[in-house]
Structures are given as C-alpha cells and as structure tokens.
Lab assay of single mutants.
Amino acid sequence: DRMTSQEAACFPDIISGPQQTQKVFLFIRNRTLQLWLDNPKIQLTFEATLQQLEAPYNSDTVLVHRVHSYLERHGLINF
C-alpha cells in the first residue's frame, strides 16, 4: 500500500518523512475508509474516527484530523 500522488502533494511532510510516518498515515487512512465503509449511511465524524482508531494510531490527533479532513474534502468519505 502506498500514498497516491494526490496524497503526496497534500501531505509533503509525510511523503518526505521517515518510512514509519508514512506507514502510520496509511494505517489511519485505510482504517478511516474502513470505518466509513462499515456504515456509509452514517456520517463519520472526526471524533468518532478518533474513538475507533486503535492505539497507538489514535495518539496523533492532528494527523488523524488532517487525514479525516482530506478524505472528506476529496469525497472519499461522507458523500
């Protein structure tokens, strides 16, 4: 699994950072998509996403918020 070119453009700090940071991003992105796909008729809020993310992935709330906002803005969740 890899970041898309659009994700890389929107998250230059992640793509240029350590490999582990990219893996954390990918986990948060994929898990958020999975959470929404589990029940697409219900809006997936940032707060609900954060509550359902497993530790330690829920510890970087800023990154979780950025990923959630990106997915929502680009019509990948909550459409």
Rank of each mutant, 00 (worst) to 15 (best):
V62P: 09
T45D: 06
D60Y: 14
D38P: 00
H74M: 12
L33G: 01
S16M: 09
F46G: 06
L44K: 00
M3Y: 08
I14N: 02
F25Y: 09
T61V: 14
N58M: 05
Q51F: 09
T45E: 07
A48S: 13
R73C: 12
N58Y: 05
Q43M: 08
Q19H: 15
G17K: 05
Y57T: 04
E54H: 07
Q20S: 13
R66G: 04
A48V: 08
Q22N: 05
E7T: 01
L44G: 02
I77L: 03
H68Q: 01
R2H: 11
R2G: 06
G75I: 03
D60N: 10
H74C: 12
T4D: 15
D13V: 03
F46H: 05
I14A: 01
H65N: 10
P12H: 07
S69P: 01
V67W: 01
R66V: 00
S59Y: 10
Q34G: 13
Q6N: 11
E72R: 05
P18M: 07
V24T: 14
Y57M: 07
A55Y: 09
F79R: 15
Q34T: 08
L35Q: 05
S69Y: 08
F11A: 02
T61M: 11
D13H: 06
Q51V: 08
P56Q: 05
V62R: 13
S16W: 08
N58Q: 10
A55S: 14
D13F: 01
A9K: 09
T61C: 12
T4Q: 05
A55P: 14
E72Q: 09
G17S: 08
E72A: 12
F79T: 08
M3P: 04
V62W: 08
L26Q: 09
T45R: 05
R73W: 11
E54C: 10
H74E: 15
P56A: 04
H74Y: 06
D13W: 04
E47L: 09
K23M: 09
F11T: 03
Q19Y: 11
R66D: 06
T49M: 08
W36Y: 15
S16F: 08
T4C: 12
S69D: 14
R31A: 11
Q19T: 11
L71R: 00
T49C: 13
L50N: 04
Q34H: 15
S69L: 07
R66Q: 07
F27V: 15
V67M: 03
Y57K: 02
E54N: 05
F46L: 13
N39Y: 06
Y70F: 11
Q22I: 14
S16P: 03
Q19R: 12
T45I: 02
T61D: 09
Q6E: 12
L26D: 08
V64E: 01
L50T: 04
A8S: 13
S5Q: 15
L33H: 10
N58S: 10
W36T: 04
R2W: 11
R2E: 04
Q19C: 09
T45A: 04
T49Q: 04
P18C: 13
V67A: 03
I14C: 04
A55R: 10
P12S: 09
L35I: 15
F46Q: 08
S5I: 07
H65K: 15
E72M: 07
N39Q: 09
N58R: 12
L33C: 12
T4M: 05
E72C: 09
P12W: 04
Q20A: 12
R31G: 04
N78R: 01
W36F: 07
I77Y: 04
Q34R: 11
F11N: 02
D38H: 10
T21S: 14
A9E: 11
Q22Y: 10
Q6T: 12
F79D: 15
E7V: 01
A9S: 10
L63I: 06
N58V: 05
R29G: 02
T4Y: 06
K41I: 12
S69A: 12
T61L: 08
P40F: 04
P40I: 04
N30Y: 04
M3K: 00
L63A: 04
F46V: 15
T61Q: 14
L50F: 06
P56D: 05
L44Q: 02
P40M: 08
Q43F: 15
K23F: 09
F46M: 08
E72Y: 03
L35Y: 06
L71I: 02
T4I: 03
S69I: 06
A55H: 12
Q19M: 11
T49P: 02
I42V: 15
K41S: 13
A8L: 11
F11I: 02
D13K: 04
S5A: 13
Q6H: 07
V62G: 14
T4L: 04
T4P: 03
E47R: 08
S69E: 12
E54W: 09
P40D: 12
F25G: 01
L26H: 07
G17R: 05
N39K: 08
L35W: 05
D38R: 13
I15R: 11
L35V: 06
V24R: 13
A55N: 05
H65A: 11
T61N: 08
L63T: 05
F11M: 03
Q22T: 06
P56W: 02
L63M: 14
E72V: 13
L71V: 01
R29L: 04
Q34F: 03
Q20E: 14
M3E: 03
V24S: 14
E7Y: 00
I28C: 05
L71W: 00
A8G: 14
E47P: 12
F11P: 01
Q34K: 15
G17W: 03
A48H: 15
L37H: 06
N58D: 07
Q6W: 07
V24W: 12
Y57L: 07
G17A: 12
E54V: 11
C10D: 15
M3C: 05
D60A: 10
L50H: 06
N30C: 05
H65Y: 11
T61K: 10
G17Y: 03
S16Q: 09
P12N: 09
L44E: 00
R2Q: 11
W36N: 04
S16C: 10
S69F: 07
I77A: 00
V67D: 01
D60I: 03
L53A: 02
T49I: 06
F46C: 11
N78G: 01
L53I: 07
A9I: 08
D1K: 15
Q22M: 15
Q34A: 10
Q52Y: 10
Q52G: 14
E7M: 02
L71G: 00
L37D: 15
T45Y: 04
Q52P: 02
L76F: 10
G75E: 15
Y70D: 01
P56G: 05
S59V: 13
Q20G: 14
Y70Q: 00
G17V: 03
K23A: 15
H74T: 13
Q20K: 14
A9W: 09
L71M: 08
R66F: 03
F27C: 12
Q19N: 15
I42N: 11
N58F: 04
W36L: 02
